[in-house]
Amino acid sequence: MSFLKLEALFVSRALGGVPRCRFSRGLRELSTAPRPTPPPPWRVLFFGTGEVALPIARRLCERSDLVSSIRVVAPRPKKGLTPVLEWASEKKIHVEIYEPSSGICSAEQRNPEEVAERYRQCQARLIQLAKEKTDIGVVADFGYLIPSSLLSAFRFPPILMHPSLLPKYRGASPIESAIIHGDAETGVTVLDLDPDHFDAGNILLQKTYAIPPDSCCARVRAELAELGAETVTECLEDYDRLYSQRRIQDPSKFSKAPKMTPADYLVNWESFTSSDVYNRWRALGVLKTRLRGCQSVRPKAGKEHLYVLIHKVEKADSEAIDDLENAVDAEKIAQARPGTLVWDKKRKKLFCRTRTSQAKDHWIGLAQLQFESGSRVIDAESFKNCVKIHLYPGKCVFF
Rank of each mutant, 00 (worst) to 15 (best):
F46Q: 01
F46Y: 11
F47Y: 14
G48Q: 07
T49N: 12
T49S: 15
G50N: 10
E51A: 15
E51F: 01
V52I: 09
V52L: 14
A53I: 05
A53M: 12
L54C: 04
L54P: 08
I56D: 08
I56A: 11
A57Q: 07
A57L: 15
R58W: 04
R58S: 10
L60T: 07
C61D: 13
E62M: 13
R63L: 15
R63Q: 13
S64E: 14
S64G: 14
S64T: 10
D65F: 10
V67C: 07
V67P: 06
S68W: 07
S68F: 07
S69I: 00
I70Y: 00
I70W: 02
I70R: 02
I70T: 01
R71V: 01
R71T: 06
V72S: 03
A74W: 06
A74D: 00
P75C: 02
P75W: 02
R76Y: 02
R76K: 06
R76T: 05
P77R: 00
K78L: 06
K79D: 03
G80D: 00
G80I: 04
P83V: 00
P83S: 05
P83G: 03
P83Y: 07
V84M: 04
L85Q: 10
W87C: 08
W87Q: 05
W87D: 04
S89Y: 10
E90G: 00
E90I: 02
K91S: 13
K91P: 00
K92V: 07
H94Q: 12
H94E: 12
H94F: 04
V95I: 15
I97H: 13
I97R: 09
I97Y: 15
E99S: 14
E99L: 08
E99G: 09
E99A: 15
P100H: 11
S101F: 12
S101H: 13
S102W: 11
S102R: 14
S102F: 14
G103N: 06
I104A: 13
I104F: 13
C105H: 13
A107G: 09
E108H: 08
Q109I: 01
Q109T: 08
Q109N: 11
Q109S: 11
R110H: 04
N111P: 02
P112K: 10
E113Y: 10
E113R: 15
E114F: 10
E114Q: 08
V115Y: 09
V115K: 08
A116G: 08
R118E: 08
R118I: 01
Y119K: 06
Y119H: 14
Y119C: 14
Q121C: 14
Q121T: 10
C122W: 05
C122V: 07
C122L: 04
Q123P: 11
Q123L: 15
A124S: 14
A124K: 14
R125G: 08
L126K: 08
I127N: 03
Q128V: 06
Q128H: 15
Q128E: 15
Q128A: 14
L129S: 11
L129W: 05
A130P: 09
A130E: 08
A130W: 09
K131W: 05
K131H: 11
K131S: 14
E132G: 04
E132S: 13
T134S: 13
T134H: 08
D135A: 01
D135I: 00
D135C: 06
I136F: 03
V138Q: 03
V139P: 03
G143N: 05
G143A: 03
Y144I: 02
Y144D: 01
L145G: 01
I146F: 08
